Lab assay of single mutants.
Amino acid sequence: LVRYRTISKIPQITLNFVDLKGDPFLASPTSDREIIAPKIKERTHNVTEKVTQVLSLGADVLPEYKLQAPRIHRWTILHYSPFKAVWDWLILLLVIYTAVFTPYSAAFLLKETEEGPPATECGYACQPLAVVDLIVDIMFIVDILINFRTTYVNANEEVVSHPGRIAVHYFKGWFLIDMVAAIPFDLLIFGSGSEELIGLLKTARLLRLVRVARKLDRYSEYGAAVLFLLMCTFALIAHWLACIWYAIGNMEQPHMDSRIGWLHNLGDQIGKPYNSSGLGGPSIKDKYVTALYFTFSSLTSVGFGNVSPNTNSEKIFSICVMLIGSLMYASIFGNVSAIIQRLYSGTARYHTQMLRVREFIRFHQIPNPLRQRLEEYFQHAWSYTNGIDMNAVLKGFPECLQADICLHLNRSLLQHCKPFRGATKGCLRALAMKFKTTHAPPGDTLVHAGDLLTALYFISRGSIEILRGDVVVAILGKNDIFGEPLNLYARPGKSNGDVRALTYCDLHKIHR
């Protein structure tokens, strides 16, 4: 019993810090008490220290592992850092350059016999395009090294910054494609005289377009951006097909006994025919423009016929181009109408809503002055909100995010209106959640004399007048207030005048 009563005193000691020596009952000389009392004092002292730490809000209350900052290894790049964003855009520009100039170089340097010394005699450094290609190869190699040090988000939505895990993730992902696209074939085969082989191998750079397509997928929600990307894709495919079309004609031209190829026909049409040795002929500019003209006309199913396939190889390629053109029509131009419709969806919704308003007016036989006010209010409210119901949009977000959005939407009023000066951010967040926005066209009466005042109004834009009878008592403008002081009276009061809008007004109100 003594032991039980001794232990039962522990909660009292913990909360009230009572010393055991003052209790005459606990001072009985028993061996059990002498053993338990020192333990009680020690526990009391420890609990006292913990309570003191909690009340003082000291940093040592938290466990040590929670006080440590997340460790980022040296030379690790955050995937959302500004440097990584700028670097990704730079790589994107280099990939676009590669997609345009690599097929052009591979096709127009394929057994090209233009006048001038061969590239091997001039030297590697004197070729501007080769120098640019070398810079692109170096940048792609540097990009691989950067990807080995860039964080990523795993399946659990955690940012991984450990170098080993980053390397394994990159090896399992895009490393092989990036490595093949970054191989400097110019340096590996330079001086061997195989410019045709170098041009063909350099087309491996186009593998990076797969990554670019995935990154550009984030802009699919913007109709104008999608339309622009589709047109660029169409032009890029036409450019690639033009390079292939020229390569076919250029390879067949020296081996044909009869002059029936499209390059021969082009030379005869523009007065620059090929001679018996295969030299001469149109310039590279004429060849490229004509090839691009043929691919565009074939892809769009126009086909004027002034550039036509004559050999079997050219006919087979033309059939493939027609098939590609039909697929592009289905996948690209078939979506253009939907994209344009999405661009004008706001206008369509406006006309639909206006039609419903006019049908309501016609069905209920609203008189002319009231009908005009109804239409003007709808037009003004639509121009202010673009038909978007803010309350319906915010309803799907958590309250903390709703408060931040409301604070942002009402920031101008909260910053410049005098009653809100000096208020804490928590108070402003709470008030912003209570605001209701209303609009009024010129001549609209917001409050009639004798109406119950259940709200306090803040003028965000425009001006109003307060009338008693036919006498203008006051004219209020931006950041002015009218209405009933909230919670100042037990019952809502009545208006002693009319409140009429002089201009288009936007008002925020808080109800009782």
Results as ranks from 00 to 15, higher is better:
Q415I: 12
V132T: 03
F333M: 05
F363T: 13
L355I: 07
G223R: 04
S161G: 11
V142M: 07
T98F: 01
A392I: 06
A238P: 01
W382N: 08
N156S: 13
A119H: 13
A235V: 13
I244G: 04
I248N: 01
T150R: 01
V168C: 11
I270R: 01
G443M: 04
L355Q: 13
V357M: 09
Q353G: 08
F83P: 05
D137E: 15
Y344G: 10
Q372K: 07
Y97S: 01
L200V: 04
A338D: 01
A381Y: 15
P441G: 09
Q353T: 10
M390I: 05
L227V: 11
N265R: 14
Q269V: 01
G305M: 01
A242C: 01
E221K: 08
L200E: 02
R421V: 09
F378V: 11
F333C: 04
T76D: 01
A242D: 01
L93N: 01
L188A: 13
K66D: 04
C243S: 01
M139W: 01
A291D: 01
I284L: 13
K287E: 01
H448D: 02
D257M: 06
R259K: 15
P70D: 15
D186A: 14
L201V: 05
K425E: 15
T300Q: 01
S81T: 07
K66P: 04
H264I: 01
G325R: 01
L67Y: 04
N335R: 08
K395H: 15
D268N: 14
F140Q: 01
G334N: 01
Y344Q: 07
G280W: 01
L266W: 01
A430G: 04
M231L: 05
A204K: 01
V212Q: 01
G173A: 04
A69K: 14
L176T: 14
L401Q: 01
W245F: 01
E121L: 09
L241N: 01
L394V: 04
A423N: 01
A247I: 09
S301H: 15
I339N: 04
L176Q: 03
H380E: 07
F294H: 01
Y246C: 01
A204Y: 11
I91V: 14
Q127K: 01
S308H: 03
D88L: 01
